[in-house]
Every structure is written in structure tokens, then in C-alpha cells.
Nucleic acid binder design. Structure first.
Length: 427
RNA sequence: GGAGGGAUGGCCGAGUGGAUGAUGGCGACGGUCUUGAAAACCGUUGUGGCCGGAAGGUCACCGAGGGUUCGAAUCCCUCUCCCUCCGCCA
């Protein structure tokens, strides 16, 4: 959510930001109109409430019965008028809140302006694209061949976009999760968190998943609970309604979770392989910082994700997202992509964003700069560190051998029981 | 799933229709005293909205949402969460 006072004071800046995001700038005017109406009603209703409070204090002091009855009758009328105005106020506030919750975040000035993903900027690349003395094979062939990915049975159990990992495949994923968590906790200063994978609807609003992403979220209607599409959701809820001490900041969390997505908007796309499933695993980094520190912390988080890529020895690149491709809740986002030689494409393995106070306002997460000072909203940041199935793809396809086996990256071997080469499910 | 009990400020805990946010204690902060500290004593100590340059004014908030009333922490209804016991269970 944006700061209403900021919209009031800088409507042109907000309109410009909306244009850069391919959104209708007219919603600013709708919000300003609702806000003006709200304040008008609020003033009127509060004057009446003040009068009622005052007279209600006088009534028990009145000895004269007739005067007393007269005041009560007057206040009954005032009460009716208050009720009318309150109803109008409720409607205006509901409309205003709805409009505010549907406003995307403002892009940071450093974000390149552009209409869509073709205007994203490749900031830097690492590693040479591998050359093979054979034709590299996509993972959807490598996996079944080795008996470590079973697409047919995944579909049999759960339907399309599901798969089963098996043997060394399942273990490789578990090794990646454990290794990445260990690197982030031991070397990058994050605290490991294991959150719920299912949350209340309010968490979805707080993280900015609702209202826009409703179509893409699994929702259990019977208990009215929502399945998380990313650990960012429960991690945003973690400090909901809290006032943190300045000394606690920055908070740096890392969480492994499964993630669930309906992929309604991607119907028919990326249907081969494990790139885009309804369920996938992810290690997520999350930070809560002061407004002053958030951009330095974003750069540090990007480095933490790049460190994982580097150690895995997989070619990768850093991409800066332009305004037209920026997520609803983000002020600034970098993506990290790994090269997958088998399917011949760059795979998004991480998306790292500074949401500034956007989520903090929705979730009411504040901190006190110093004892006695007024609380301020924190900034929240999130970034994958990294998303599993795509890292699996990159590892399988980059480390494949002519005979169809996979060399286990050295950094993972301690987490794979010393296994050096995956030759089949039994490994 | 069944039965019962709860939810008040940073924490504990009073308060069942009308006084400066809503006793009191703890904690925290400031001060007096002291070489320093402790103790003692005194004081301060929630969040947000609106109006205002400011001083200040005003409203709301006692788990959430409705209702009754001139007036609700207090009475009524619905919901959520927590606790205890029983049942089931990884």
C-alpha cells in the first residue's frame, strides 16, 4: 500500500509511476476524491460525537427531570444523525481502502523505464556457456533416463504439472536445500525459519498477493485458508502488527518452503519438464530493514544469491527488471537467471525485490528508531536463494556427461553422502 | 469431533452502564539523594485518524464485527484465537 499523504501531496509523481507500469493514472483521482469526501464526513461526524460526549456527561448532573428528558431527546436525534453519517463514512472508507489495496508500488528512480520484459537490462554475466562434444540433452530426457524424475506417475497421482523425484534426484533436491540453508545461515548471517505453508487470507493481503493474484492461488474454501506461493507470504505475516526495536534491525531470515501455484495465467506454457509445476520447493531470503538501509541490503541480498550460483559453477546472469515488468508490490527487482544448455534457455532461479514500505503498511510492521520516538514503517525485502526445480534443471543439464550420467557439483557432495556421479536412481 | 474456561495497555492484573486514555503493581526512562551503585522517594511512560503554521483541539481503539442505550471495557448476538479435559492421530 502507498502512503495516502504522499498521493495527496505528489499526485503527479504517482500518475507518472502508474503510466510507467502500464496502469491507468486516473485511479489517483478516484483516490483523491474518496479521500476528500472521507475527511469531510469525518469532520462532521466527529463534531457531532464531541457534542454527544459533552452532553452525555452533563445528563447525570441534571436534577430537573424535564430538562433531563429534553436533553436525552436531543441526543437521540444527534445519535440518529451520527448513525447516518457513519454509514456514509463506512462506504467511502471501504471504497478508498479497496482502491488503495489495488494500487501497485512506486518504482524506485533507479529502475529503467520500459513497457515490458524486452526492456529488462542484463547487468552482468558470469561463467562461460559450456561447450559439449556431444549434443546436450534437456532434463526431461535426462531425468527419466536416469530414473530420477518420473513424469508419468506424477501426473497419475496429481494431474498435469506434477512429477515425482526419485532416488538420487530426490536426494539432489534435498542436498541443494540443506546446502543453501547452511550457506545462508552460516556465512551470510540469516536466521533459519520454518513457517506454515498454509495461511489466513489476511496474510495474502499483507504480502500484496491479493487482490491481483487471486487466480493463481490455491484456496481451501471449507476452512478459508490459502496455500502459499512463496515463503515471502508467511514471513511478511511474521511481524504483522508489531513495533520492532531499532537494534533488532535488520532482521535477516531464510526459509525453506514448498510453494503452490495454480499457474492459470501460464496455461499451456512451459508444460515440459520441471520448470513450472503446481508445487515446487524454494529457499527464500527475507529482510526487514530501516528505510535508510534497504537498498544496501538489497544489493547484499543479490550478492548472497549470486554466491550460490557461483559456487554451483553454473553460468548465470543478473537482470534488472524495468518498470513495465515490475511486480505489483516491488519498488525495484533483480532477477538471476541460470543457463540451461539442454533446453537452451535462461531460467529464472531468483527474483529479488525491495518492497520498501509497501508490505509494511499493509501488515503494519513498524520499528521505533529510538526509545520514545514515533514508530515508522520498516522496509521489507525478499529474494529467492534459490528456487529449486530450476536450479535442479541447471545442474542436471550443465553437469551432464556424454553417457547420460550427471557429475555432482563438488559443493554438494558432502550433502549427497559423498556421491560424485549420478548414474541412476539407486545412486 | 465433544465439554468447559478465557481474551483489558510492554508484562501481570482490577474494573459488570456515567470523573484529566481505563485502579494498582512490575518493567523501562528521567530526576532527587550518593564518591559511584543499590535502596528509597518524585515524575514520565500506548496507537492511529482529522483540523491547525504551531500551541493546541477533537475522535476512535479494552480480541474482531454487529446490536441495545442519551451514554458501553461493562448488557445482547455472531465470529476469531488461546487454555484445560476427553476422543482421534504423524
Amino acid at each position: 500500500m502507498l502512503d495516502l499523504a504522499f498521493i495527496r501531496e505528489h499526485p503527479d509523481a504517482v500518475r507518472a509511476a502508474l503510466l510507467h507500469r502500464n496502469e491507468n493514472p486516473g485511479r489517483v483521482d478516484h483516490i483523491l476524491a474518496q479521500d476528500a469526501r472521507r475527511r469531510e464526513l469525518l469532520q462532521e461526524v466527529e463534531e457531532l460525537r464531541a457534542e454527544r460526549n459533552r452532553v452525555s456527561k452533563e445528563i447525570p448532573q441534571l436534577k430537573d427531570q424535564a430538562a433531563r428528558e429534553q436533553r436525552i431527546a436531543q441526543m437521540r436525534q444527534v445519535g440518529d444523525r451520527i448513525a447516518e453519517l457513519e454509514e456514509q463514512l463506512r462506504q467511502v472508507e471501504a471504497e478508498l481502502e479497496k482502491a488503495m489495496l489495488d494500487m501497485p508500488n512506486l518504482p524506485h528512480p533507479s529502475v529503467p523505464v520500459g513497457p515490458d520484459e524486452t526492456h529488462n537490462i542484463v547487468v552482468r554475466e558470469w561463467g562461460k556457456l559450456p561447450e559439449f562434444n556431444f549434443e546436450p540433452v534437456p532434463h526431461w530426457e535426462l531425468g527419466p533416463e536416469l530414473g530420477i524424475i518420473d513424469f508419468e506417475r506424477g501426473v497419475k497421482i496429481a494431474g498435469s504439472r506434477f512429477y515425482v523425484l526419485r532416488g538420487a534426484g530426490a536426494r539432489l533436491q534435498r542436498a541443494l536445500i540443506s546446502w543453501m540453508l547452511d550457506v545462508h545461515t552460516r556465512e551470510h548471517g540469516y536466521t533459519e525459519v520454518y513457517p506454515p505453508f498454509i495461511v489466513k487470507e489476511e496474510c495474502m493481503w499483507q504480502a500484496g498477493q491479493l487482490p491481483r493474484l487471486a487466480e493463481n492461488i490455491y484456496h481451501d474454501v471449507e476452512d478459508d485458508v490459502w496455500f502459499i506461493g512463496t515463503a515471502e507470504i508467511p514471513l511478511t505475516g511474521l511481524h504483522h502488527d508489531e513495533i520492532l526495536d531499532a537494534e533488532e534491525l535488520p532482521l535477516r531470515y531464510v526459509a525453506y518452503t514448498a510453494c503452490f501455484r495454480r499457474e492459470k495465467m501460464s496455461a499451456g506454457r512451459d508444460v515440459r519438464g520441471i520448470k513450472r509445476g503446481h508445487q515446487f520447493d524454494k529457499v527464500e531470503m527475507y529482510k526487514i530493514t530501516t528505510p535508510e538501509d534497504s537498498y544496501a541490503e538489497l544489493e547484499a541480498m543479490v550478492e548472497d544469491a549470486l554466491d550460490i550460483c557461483r559456487r554451483l559453477g553454473v553460468p548465470h546472469r543478473l537482470v534488472q527488471i524495468c518498470t513495465g515488468d515490475l511486480g505489483f508490490h516491488s519498488s525495484k527487482t533483480y532477477d538471476i537467471e541460470m543457463w540451461a544448455p539442454g533446453c537452451g534457455e535462461w531460467l529464472e532461479v531468483s527474483s529479488l525485490s525491495n518492497c520498501e514500505a509497501f508490505q509494511a503498511r499493509r501488515a503494519n510492521i513498524r520499528y521505533r528508531p529510538e526509545p520514545g520516538a514515533k514508530p515508522r514503517f520498516v522496509h521489507t525485502l525478499n529474494g529467492s536463494g534459490l528456487a529449486l526445480p530450476r536450479v535442479m534443471i541447471a545442474v542436471l543439464e550443465n553437469y551432464q556427461q556424454a553417457d547420460g550420467s550427471i557429475v555432482v557439483p563438488e559443493v554438494l557432495r558432502d550433502w549427497m553422502g559423498g556421491l560424485e556421479v549420478i548414474r541412476g536412481a539407486s545412486g
